[in-house]
């Protein structure tokens, strides 16, 4: 049944959504499994990128440009979040000489 396979493999909205879902899950796994604060921040960036792919795909397939505007906002938030998160990582490293996520609870004061 070459026709059926071609229909399944033909790229549609679903393919982009599945790619985005898998990328998001990879980001979730990175946040859950890693201990290095910087790698956790990178995993969060992965998740934000997955959301962006979803936004752009829906924007393209519904012919509505609002989704691209949302992607701009998400990118801005992501850059801001990276800046603050990396500043916190520097703080942790200066105090504990290691960037392990479990030192976050000792950052008080």
């Amino acid at each position: 049944m070459p026709n059926t396979i071609d229909t399944i493999l033909k790229v549609s909205l679903n393919h982009y959504l599945v790619l985005s879902a898998v990328l998001f899950t990879l980001g979730v796994l990175g946040v859950l499994l890693r201990k290095n604060v910087i790698v956790i921040l990178m995993s969060i960036e992965l998740m934000l990128n997955a959301v962006n792919v979803t936004f752009i795909a829906f924007s393209r397939y519904s012919g509505n440009i609002d989704g691209q505007v949302m992607v701009f906002f998400v990118m801005t938030i992501a850059a801001a979040e990276a800046a603050v998160g990396l500043a916190l990582a520097v703080l942790i490293f200066r105090r504990f000489k290691e960037i392990n996520i479990r030192y976050f609870e000792h950052l008080r004061g």
């Binding site: 982009y16 992965l46 990128n49 792919v53 752009i56 795909a57 691209q68």
Partner: peptide, 20 residues
Amino acid sequence: LALTMVSVAGVFVSLDAWFV
């Protein structure tokens, strides 16, 4: 992660979102 970002940009291009 840089490689992933670049390929996500490629995905955007494939969706005709050139500016993004």
